[in-house]
Each structure stands twice: as structure tokens, then as C-alpha cells.
Simulated assay, not measured.
Amino acid sequence: MVKEVIEHSYLMRDLPQLSPRHQTYGLEVFHSIVSHLAPKSTHFFHLMMLARLYIAAHHFNANRNRAQAKRRDGAEMWKPSYPKATKGTECVVKKCKVPAAYGMHIHLIS
């Protein structure tokens, strides 16, 4: 049954049309947080690395659905962006998010 669903012609036809940007954006953000907290150029013992991965996961989960920032008068804030895909020739307007929450201040010692 699972094989029939996976190999169905409709799914096979639709897969190439899916946008890779929307599929991997969250994963790329998480990986950037992990790279910040546990850079590959630094050796960490297993428990320290595990703790850093837990902190990265907690930070990502706590901040993934941040609200759109608003001005004092209640108007939503927006910012211009020039995507690399268009080589900076087209402007796209994106939402400004509220600043990330860090909860308790955690100082990591390498």
C-alpha cells in the first residue's frame, strides 16, 4: 500500500514542481543556529555537544512563530529585500518580525 502511494504517477508528476525553498527553509535556519552554537572548527566532548544541540533546538522552537512587529500606532512593519535569485534586480517586501526571545541568558563556555 505504501509503495503504491509513493510510486503513484500523480505524486511523481508533482514532485519536480515543488519548491525546494519552502521545503528546506526551516531546516536551514535550524542548521545556522546549530552552526552558531557548535561551530565545526571547535571540538566539543559528547555531553557538551549534546547540550548545545538541545539549546539550539529549544531556541529554534521557541522563536519559529514570531509575530510581525508593529509600530507604536499599531501599523505592521515591513522591510524591502533583494533576493539573490533575482540578482538584486527585483525588490520583495517582507514582514519584520519581533526580536527573538532568548529566555534565560545562557552563556556557553567553549
Rank of each mutant, 00 (worst) to 15 (best):
N61L: 09
H36I: 00
A85P: 06
A51V: 07
H36V: 03
K40Y: 04
K84P: 05
S81R: 11
H43W: 04
K97A: 13
D14S: 07
A101P: 09
S41D: 13
N63Q: 12
I6K: 09
G103S: 09
A101K: 15
Y82R: 14
K95V: 00
L11P: 04
T86G: 11
V2H: 08
L108R: 05
K3R: 09
M49N: 09
S9V: 02
A75E: 03
K94S: 10
A62W: 09
S32Q: 01
H58S: 06
A75I: 02
G103M: 10
K40H: 07
L47K: 15
H107T: 03
I106P: 08
Y10N: 01
H22G: 09
I55S: 04
P20S: 11
P16T: 01
Y102S: 03
H22Y: 10
G88A: 14
H8Q: 04
K79P: 02
H36Y: 09
H46G: 15
P20Q: 15
A100Q: 06
P20Y: 13
A100S: 15
S19R: 08
K3S: 01
L27W: 10
G88D: 07
T24V: 12
R72I: 02
M77I: 00
R72V: 05
K95S: 00
S9K: 04
S35W: 11
M48Y: 09
I55M: 06
K95T: 01
V92G: 06
L15F: 05
Q68W: 10
A69K: 01
R52V: 06
H59N: 08
D73P: 01
S32D: 04
P39C: 02
H31L: 15
S19I: 00
R66K: 05
A101E: 15
